[in-house]
Amino acid sequence: MTIDQSKTTNKLLHGLTPENFALIGSHLQHRQFALDHYLVRSHQPITSVVFPESCIASRVIQSPVGKDVEVALIGFEGMTGTALIMGDDRTPLDSYIQSAGAGYVLPAWALVAALDKSRSLERYLLRYVQTLIIQASSTALINGMANAETRLARWLLMLHDRTTGANISTTHEFIAVMLAMRRPWVTETLHLLEGKHLIKTSRGSIRILNRAGLIAEAKGFYGLAETEYARIMTPPDPMPKVPLAYLAGQ
């Protein structure tokens, strides 16, 4: 059954031209994803990609001692399995669900076939890959230069961007893994942000009370990736047109 593009809430799917959506629409399947469900496993062939709607995925890299560290968040603005867009069939990174919810699954072969048929689809999805590179670069910057409060403030803002409503479902343990922080530091940092009336914590949930205050707490480390996403993904096709005379060798 072909998905109605006008009813999709995933921004990538919604932003496709009708012609490009037609290449993949009949292969999309709507599914629910549970917490911790793996979407991509490191060093293994990618069998499908996911376009999240209400679920949120973490892209993580594993340290030599086996600890995961998050390098990117993927919500309704994006997709998993982007190695396929780059011409590869696997990645050293894992992707798994950090917030349960719904999304669309597309077989890897269907995406590759569509990319082979449409240069404009390839360019469109490559622009999304560029936004992921910027997000990962911003994460590397803040991890190397900012304190725990600033890092946690940015991470909460990024989750909030991908969540409907003010409540974020997460745990102290999960935050510790994603931000490579010790559990006591997570608890202390959450208490500091709560003491500033920016958030309200409860078991398994964090409520955003003052988004503007969190942005200030992020001290300029939040916003670059988000602004660049809007710039890169908003134009229908920013690639320069090649003059016909050039194509004719004149």
Rank of each mutant, 00 (worst) to 15 (best):
P236H: 11
A113Q: 06
N20A: 10
L156Q: 15
R211W: 02
S169G: 06
L73Y: 14
L156N: 11
V65F: 03
R182L: 14
K196S: 12
E70Y: 00
K196H: 01
R127L: 12
A114G: 00
A136V: 11
M239P: 00
I61Y: 02
L121A: 02
P236A: 01
H30Y: 07
E226Q: 07
T150M: 00
L156E: 13
A230D: 05
I3K: 09
M79A: 01
I168C: 04
I3Y: 07
A245E: 13
N167M: 14
S205L: 11
A146T: 07
L214T: 03
R31C: 11
R119E: 08
T17A: 05
G223V: 01
V49E: 03
T164K: 13
I199D: 11
V50C: 04
R90P: 05
L126Q: 15
I61F: 05
N167A: 08
G75D: 03
M86F: 10
A216Q: 13
M233I: 06
D4C: 13
A180C: 06
R123Q: 14
T8F: 02
R31W: 04
G223A: 02
E173F: 06
S169F: 09
A110K: 01
G101C: 05
I206S: 14
S120R: 13
R90S: 03
L125C: 01
I61R: 06
M86L: 07
L214W: 01
V186W: 10
G81L: 14
L209T: 04
V112G: 07
A100I: 04
G204R: 10
R127Q: 03
L125E: 06
T201C: 05
I168Q: 15
V71G: 10
Y104P: 04
V65R: 11
V65E: 14
L23R: 00
S95Q: 15
L132A: 03
T189W: 04
A225Y: 03
L28M: 02
A83N: 06
Y222Q: 05
C55F: 05
R231A: 08
R151F: 08
T201A: 12
Q32K: 11
Y222D: 10
W185A: 06
E228T: 05
K67E: 06
L159C: 06
S48T: 05
A212N: 09
L179E: 02
P52R: 14
A245I: 08
V71I: 12
Y222G: 08
P236R: 13
V129S: 11
L73F: 05
A22I: 11
R41I: 03
T187S: 03
M86K: 14
L193K: 15
Y246H: 03
I142K: 10
A148K: 09
R123V: 09
L152K: 07
R154D: 15
T163G: 08
I133L: 14
R207I: 13
F21I: 04
P240F: 13
S48D: 10
R183P: 13
M178Y: 12
F174N: 12
L121W: 00
S54R: 15
L84Q: 12
M145Q: 05
I56P: 10
L39A: 00
L28T: 07
G15A: 08
V69M: 02
S137R: 12
S6A: 09
